[in-house]
Nucleic acid binder design. Structure first.
Lengths: 190, 190
DNA sequence: AACGTAGTACTACACATGGAGTGGTGTCAA
DNA sequence: TTGACACCACTCCATGTGTAGTACTACGTT
């Protein structure tokens, strides 16, 4: 088992692209090798098994979907009202759009996790942490709404993103924008 | 190309199970043959190509997820208020849970549709029709809320179902129940 | 400066799996 | 008798895994 961390990371990032493009079943050692432009057999040397590969990708993918520190601190400033909340959510949707393949890969992982208990455990942990972090962030931010608002927004926006990524002709850009606004507005009404 | 409609249907239904269990890439003619317990090569005779198979499954799957006539007419009776609306949505979530593999197969199809334009066209059409039908049904039902409520509920509940099917430990049954209620209540507040 | 060693990159191969497509035969009913 | 279909068998082909073996590079030792 090789340990070179840059190379391992490059392989995992390549795996994310493969996942998004070819689907879970298309995530093979050889496909990762090809995507990362390394010699055939390299991924075999870095991951004990396909299961191991899936699990490591599951651990990494979520990091890449989170906002960076700069974005977070930027949003801590200014009035924390409904308008700001909406901005935050628009930013979230746009951020995911900018890392399209990452979100698609996460969906593939979710589906694959119905077949791989280890992967499911990793994803469950990460996502539960993320939801709790969002609730916690919200609680200290001074933004309006309660924890249920946060979860409802999480639900609606996630599917909105799915819709946009998988069947982009269902809603127009304009409709998506309005739906985000509406979701924020209504989820705040307890 | 064979035309026996019962057999074709049986093959398509088998394909749905294969999709849910093995993923999109695992949907092969041979796997369908095995699932439908027919001799190897049968699916080859019924579908011109894998693409054709995907498209036909895409056309059929959505029918099987819709409520039957009895359920619909039953819901037309009684007071059409927020409580009734919530009942309706709980029924929707339970119905999907009862046809677990159907919903998972639909998710697989959505992801596969990023690679198959023909499938994407079929799914887009079906789903757009379903959303419009829901909006239309709502408009004539006397239920509270506007068309935006309907779409917001569609978004939130879809992801709730995804969450439950793919990572069942994220939310408890109790939380899911409460989230459905909250989603109904808040989406109605314009 | 020469040498040895460890870790890794790279290559090649042996082995296995699984699926597509098709041609042919048997069967049943109009 | 004929046609449609179920069923079976066989060939061809593509792809992936795992691993053994070789080459390279950096580093420490004397």
């Amino acid at each position: 088992m090789r340990t070179n961390p840059e190379r391992r990371q490059a392989l995992i990032d390549a795996a994310i692209e493969v996942l998004a493009r070819e689907g879970a079943r298309g995530l093979t050692f050889r496909a990762v090798d090809a995507e990362a432009a390394v010699p055939a057999g390299t991924a075999s040397n870095y991951f004990a098994s396909r299961d191991d590969l899936f699990t490591q990708v599951g651990g990494r993918i979520y990091e890449r979907l989170l906002p960076d520190e700069a974005t977070i601190t930027r949003h801590r400033e200014g009035a924390q009202d409904e308008t700001r909340y909406a901005e935050l959510m628009h930013e979230l949707v746009d951020r995911v759009a900018a890392f399209n393949s990452g979100y698609l890969a996460l969906l593939e992982l979710r589906l694959e996790s119905t077949r791989r208990p280890e992967l499911r455990a990793v994803l469950t942990k990460r996502i539960r942490e993320d939801i709790d972090a969002n609730i916690g962030y919200h609680a200290t931010s001074g933004l309006p709404g309660d924890s249920t608002s946060v979860v409802l927004l999480y639900l609606a926006l996630n599917w909105l993103i799915v819709e946009r990524l998988t069947l982009p002709d269902i809603f127009t850009q304009q409709e998506i924008h309005e739906l985000v606004d509406a979701a924020v507005r209504r989820s705040l009404n307890a």
